[in-house]
C-alpha cells in the first residue's frame, strides 16, 4: 500500500493523541485579526439598522440585507471558524452547497409574491 510508505502521515483520535506522530493541528494566528473582524462585524450590524430606517422597503433593499448577511458570514466562517487557514477543498465542500441554498432562498422569496393571488 502506498499510504504505508508515508509513515509520518498518520491520523489519530484526539484521545489517543501521541505527540511524536503527526496530527493535523491548527496553530495560533494571533489576536489582532480577531479584534479587527469584531469591529467590522459590529459596524456592519449598525449599518444594517441604519439602512433599515433610511432606505424605503424594496427588492433592492432586501438584496442588500442578504448580501450584508453573506459578508458577515464570510468573516465569521473565514476568521472565527478558521476556514481561511484550512485546506481549500474543505472550504469548497462547505461553501458550494450553501451557495445553492442562498439562491433557493432568494428564489422562494420571489415565488412567495405569487401565492394567494389566484
Amino acid at each position: 500500500m502506498s499510504s504505508q510508505t508515508n509513515q509520518k502521515v498518520d491520523i489519530h483520535d484526539e484521545v489517543n493523541y501521541d505527540p511524536t506522530v503527526w496530527v493535523p493541528k491548527a496553530h495560533s494566528h494571533g489576536t489582532s485579526d480577531i479584534w479587527k473582524k469584531f469591529w467590522i462585524l459590529s459596524f456592519l450590524t449598525v449599518a444594517d439598522v441604519v439602512a433599515y430606517f433610511i432606505w424605503p422597503p424594496s427588492i433592492s433593499r432586501n438584496i442588500f440585507f442578504i448580501l450584508m448577511g453573506i459578508i458577515k458570514a464570510w468573516f465569521i466562517v473565514g476568521t472565527f471558524m478558521h476556514m481561511k487557514h484550512e485546506h481549500k477543498k474543505l472550504g469548497y465542500m462547505i461553501i458550494l452547497p450553501m451557495a445553492f441554498v442562498i439562491f433557493f432562498l432568494y428564489w422562494m422569496m420571489y415565488e412567495g409574491n405569487f401565492w394567494g393571488t389566484f
Binding site: V9, I11, W22
Partner: peptide, 26 residues
C-alpha cells in the same frame, strides 16, 4: 512535518487526511 508531497492516488487512498484536518473537526 506535514509538508510531505503525497501523490494524488494516495491522497484519497486512506491512511491520511485529504482535507488536512483531524477526524473530529471534519
Amino acid at each position: 512535518m506535514s509538508t510531505q508531497t503525497i501523490s494524488k492516488a494516495s491522497t484519497w487512498g486512506g491512511g491520511n487526511s485529504p482535507f488536512n484536518v483531524s477526524y473530529g473537526k471534519l
